[in-house]
C-alpha cells in the first residue's frame, strides 16, 4: 500500500488531553492519541496495569475524554468482554469497547484472557501498544522483548536469549475476523486499520509498535524515526490478517540492514557483529514466511462461513443465525 501523505483527513479533535503523564517522546501516548482520533467519542476504554495506568493521570484526573475503567493486569480482554455484553444488554451496540494493554498485559499475563475473548469472538477492539518490555516497572524483559536486547532483567552479561513471541500468529490461530500490525510512524495506516476494526463485528486485534525512549535507550526526538526504521528493516512489517488466514502486506519495506535499526538504540549496543548477523537471519526468515502466507491464495473457508459478504450460500446464513442466538 502506498502511503498517502494527506493528513487533512485526520480529525483535529483530540480525545487525549494535554497534561497527561507520558515521558517525552512516548510512542504509547501517541498511539492512544491516534486510535482515539479513529474511534471517536463513542468509545469506552478498559485499561489494565501498564504505562497507561500512569499516563491517564491519578485521581481525580483523567487525560482521556472517554470513559475509562482501570483494571487488574491480566483482565483487559475479560473486562472488555463484560463491558461489551453489558452495553449490548442495554441496546448500546454502537459503542466501541477498546481494551488497551501493553505487551506485558498482552503477550504474558493477559494472554489467557485474551485467548478466551478471541476464541469467543467478542465484539471488542483489543489493542496492544508494544514497547517490548515492562517499561512502567523499570524496563524488565517480557516475552515481547526481542532477541539480544538489554533490559534490567536481561543485563548485557546475559541478554535476552529467546526470540520475541509471535503474537500475530497466536491471534491469527484463533481465526478472528481481523488482526493488524500498525505503527505510530504510519498514522494514516494506523487510523485506517482502527476504523476498519471498528466496522467489523467480532474480535479485532491490533498490535502497535510503540518505541519507548527510556527503555530502548534512544533520544526522545527520534521515536518516529525508530518506528519507521523498524518497518523499513522488516523488524515490524505492516500487515493485516483477515479471518486468521488472509495475510495482506500493507507496506513494502525498504529492506534496510538491521544494524541501521539496532544502532539507533543503546539497548542493542552490546551486540557483537556475529549476533547482529544472527538477528538479520531471524528477520529474513520471518519475512520470507510472511511472504509465503501473504501469497497463499487458499479457499478461505473461515471467510465463507463468518463474513456476511460471502453469504452466497443460504445454508451459511442459517448457520450463522443459529449460532448468533446468545449474541
Amino acid at each position: 500500500m502506498k502511503q498517502i501523505n494527506d493528513f487533512s483527513r485526520i480529525t483535529k479533535d483530540e480525545l487525549l488531553c494535554s497534561g497527561h503523564l507520558a515521558c517525552p517522546g512516548c510512542g504509547g501516548s501517541l498511539a492512544m492519541k491516534l486510535v482515539l482520533k479513529a474511534l471517536g467519542k463513542k468509545t469506552m476504554v478498559v485499561l489494565p496495569a501498564c504505562c497507561w495506568s500512569v499516563i491517564a493521570g491519578p485521581f481525580p484526573y483523567s487525560s482521556l475524554k472517554v470513559p475509562l475503567f482501570h483494571t487488574a493486569f491480566e483482565t483487559a480482554a475479560s473486562v472488555a468482554s463484560g463491558v461489551r455484553s453489558s452495553l449490548n444488554a442495554q441496546g448500546k451496540d454502537d459503542i466501541n469497547v477498546l481494551a488497551w494493554a501493553g505487551d506485558g498485559g498482552t503477550f504474558d499475563i493477559g494472554l489467557q484472557a485474551l485467548s478466551g475473548a478471541a476464541e469467543r469472538n467478542e465484539d471488542i477492539i483489543y489493542i496492544c501498544y508494544d514497547n517490548e518490555a515492562y517499561m512502567n516497572t523499570g524496563i524488565q524483559r517480557s516475552s515481547a522483548t526481542p532477541w539480544g536486547a538489554w533490559t534490567t532483567t536481561t543485563p548485557i552479561s546475559h541478554p535476552k536469549d529467546r526470540p520475541k513471541k509471535d503474537i500475530m500468529d497466536i491471534m491469527a490461530a484463533h481465526k478472528i475476523p481481523y488482526c493488524a500490525n500498525a505503527s505510530v510512524a504510519f498514522p494514516e495506516d494506523l487510523i485506517r486499520k482502527v476504523k476498519k476494526a471498528a466496522s467489523i463485528k467480532g474480535m479485532k486485534f491490533i498490535h502497535i509498535i510503540a518505541p519507548c525512549t527510556a527503555g530502548w535507550k534512544e533520544p526522545s526526538n527520534i521515536t518516529i524515526k525508530v518506528a519507521r526504521e523498524a518497518v523499513a528493516a522488516r523488524v515490524f512489517p505492516l500487515f493485516e490478517i483477515e479471518h486468521g488466514t488472509d495475510y495482506i502486506i500493507n507496506e513494502m519495506p525498504a529492506k534496510i540492514p538491521i544494524d541501521k535499526y539496532l544502532s539507533m538504540q543503546a539497548r542493542f549496543r552490546h551486540l557483537k557483529p556475529i549476533y547482529i548477523k544472527y538477528i538479520q537471519k531471524l528477520i529474513d526468515y520471518e519475512w520470507g514466511l510472511l511472504g509465503v502466507k501473504a501469497k497463499n491464495e487458499m479457499d478461505n473457508v473461515y471467510r465463507k462461513i463468518f463474513d456476511p459478504k460471502h453469504h452466497v450460500d443460504k445454508k451459511h446464513v442459517k448457520l450463522e443465525r443459529d449460532f448468533e442466538h446468545n449474541g
Binding site: 475479560s78 463491558v83 453489558s86 442495554q90 489467557q112
Partner: peptide
C-alpha cells in the same frame, strides 16, 4: 478469574 473480571466490566457499564 475472567468470570469475575467479565461481570465486573458488565457491572461497571451498568
Amino acid at each position: 478469574h475472567s468470570a469475575l473480571a467479565a461481570v465486573m466490566g458488565a457491572s461497571a457499564a451498568g
